[in-house]
Amino acid sequence: MLEAFVLITILIGFLGVLFKKNLIMKIISMDVMSTGVVAYYVVVSAREGLFTPIITDSPSGTYADPVPQAVILTAIVIGFSIQALMLVGAIKLAKDNPTLETREIEQSNTP
């Protein structure tokens, strides 16, 4: 169930990148998509348990898998920096294309 919702989030983000006309909206859609991916990693790591994997005196038995969580942390950082970079690009483009319609920008910038 949870998995289905996460996958729907990824799909919505993807469709946003595809169908939104505005550059900023496209960038935000991409963020939605990457949020979905991050959530998917969390869902996968929580399959076998929810407890934080720290050794204590009374082991609870059902620990969450730490590996995907650790891995996705890197991806979050990378995603964030790419997002920042894209927004800087959008700021620069906004000077000459105030509406930031991708189709307009594309038409004036392809040979």
């Binding site: 990824i10 993807f14 990148v17 550059l23 496209k26 991409m30 998509m33 990457s34 991916v37 990693y41 991806a75 995603g79 790419i82 970079l85 894209m86 690009g89 959008a90 620069k92 483009l93 000459d96 294309n97 920008i105 594309e106 004036s108 910038n109």
Partner: peptide, 22 residues
Amino acid sequence: DRSIWVGLRYLFVSNVAMLFYL
């Protein structure tokens, strides 16, 4: 402007592709 747009387009395509990869 053109170089920024070409770059943004590249970054978009490759980042979406890499999300599928993840």
